[in-house]
Design a protein around this nucleic acid. Sequence first.
RNA 1: UGCCUCGUGGUGUAAUGGUAGCACCGCAGAUUCUGAUUCUGCUUGUUGGGGUUCGAGUCCCUGCGAGGCAACCA
Length: 569
Amino acid sequence: MSESDTSRHFLRQWIEKDVAEGKTGGKVVTRFPPEPNGYIHIGHAKAVCVDFGMAELFGGECHLRLDDTNPAKESDEYAANIKKDINWLGFQWSGPGDGAEAGFYNASNMFDTMYRIAENLISAGQAYCCNLTQDEWKEYRGVPEKPGRPSPSRDTSPERNLRIFREMKEGKYADGEWCLRAKIDMASPNIHFRDPVIYRIRHVAHYHLGDKWCIYPMYDFAHPIEDALEGVTHSMCTLEFEVHRPLYDWVVDRLDEMGMLVERGGVKIRPQQREFARLNITHTVMSKRLLLQLVTEGHVGGWDDPRMPTVCGMRRRGYTPGAIREFCERVGVSKVESESDPLLLEWCVREELNKTAQRRMAVLDPVKVVIDNFDGVREVELPNNPLDEGAGTRKIPFGREIWIERADFMEEAPKKFFRMAIGQEVRLRGACIFKAASCVKDAEGRIAEIHGTWDPESWGGNAADGRKVKGTIHWVDAATGVAAEIRLYERLFTEKDPLKDGPAGFLKYMNKDSLKLAQGFVEPLLAKAAPGERFQFERTGYFVADEKDFTAGRPVFNRTVSLKDSFKA
RNA sequence: UGCCUCGUGGUGUAAUGGUAGCACCGCAGAUUCUGAUUCUGCUUGUUGGGGUUCGAGUCCCUGCGAGGCAACCA
């Protein structure tokens, strides 16, 4: 996408201005800082597009930094999959990195430095150790509309606090017994300024550093340090951090006083934070906690269940990285909290797949048709993609017995039913014109088999006498068609806002029909698909060979999205 | 209700004091060997009230509405 095509949203204008004013030292540096405590979802994908996208636009670099400052819920599994998903979306981190890998950082690799900074703060009388219990602290801090009260430890000496902080680090105290607080302003209308906790004791092993630490820095302290020390110029995050910004700036000021800001191109790099609205999509949930609940309670098959809004789930569903990026681009960047319609996402994926996916025929709900006056075997040749001549053609066997879609036949056709009906001509896609004569039903009155005749003058699909046939339906040759499992997905929730009754009640809005299994037949070529390969099943939708379960002996396809259907009875 | 942020068609987003535009959705029609695609047309909007200005979606005041902040989470 060219520069002029992308939106000139407020973050872009902000960076443009800073670049023009020379604040970046010649290089725009951003970062994407996920906590490795879950899989990334479409909401993170928007942040990825913003963070990496802005760096790309300005010819700078975007760091991938795992914000692993709270070991309780973090793991290597999550870390590895976050990296995989970002790469799949089409982005690559760059920059020096804090280890062997360019552009890659762990916040935890900065713990030594953070500890020293904390000590400096204590020495300067700007931080102190506090042993108020959490309940006491809550009471001391007060409520937003009234000033808080100072902790009894607030004015203790740096020497004493240095000692206690060291003892905290050495494991002398239990979780919660002491913490380190920044000394700022107990009367501030901004709660985050009321001497926020910046280090707490957690006797928990860290997935990356093991047992090295039993004290861990808090986000508000760690994040600005990470940004500053990495030389990040523009730190973009979601709206709920807006109230934290003064604290972010406070920490950056302290680093400046300590002479710790990095210099680039003769300019001291002061990281700045700005906030944009997170992506919300109707008919789904986006919180990691709720997604985890869906997984652990077995409501879905896993983080990569194709109904999940996770990046891995969407990949398995058949969404393309391009469609997801296009969606994020079209949704835009602003400060307005909004809810996007999943229809736009669906439009984006159809838009791409229409141009790129090869066409195939598959019958999802089969009923047999016998062409009474047809003998032998023929081959039909159809383009793989009528929109792309380079995609070539393929040959499909055609015989006396075929499968068609149950919904494509009615005994008596209503006025606008252009498909197969008794006495009505219909075209069998690419093959010939067919007229149904009769049907047989089973004991329950269900159509079991349809009989009829073809027009031998119409091979290829057009009548010799030039008469028009309005309807064309797809089919699969019964002799060579391959049985396949086809998974039909719909939205996970029936309710526009599944959280409308609060986070406790969202499960009752789950869509019972979000997954339907179909046993159908597909044209022979489809058995040779590669897992992850995407197709358009003509007249039906876009499908992907399941990346986990597909085998040539047992083809499994997931419906990414249906084709638009304007048929009205 | 202390502080902060935000209000433009059904949805998302432009217009940065000068004709309220684009996209999705929806609706109609044309084309079509996919009821897809493509093409054409249409419906729908600046939160209320004041003010500044030749001129206000934009600036000011005020009301209304929505969201955020009171984890030793991020």
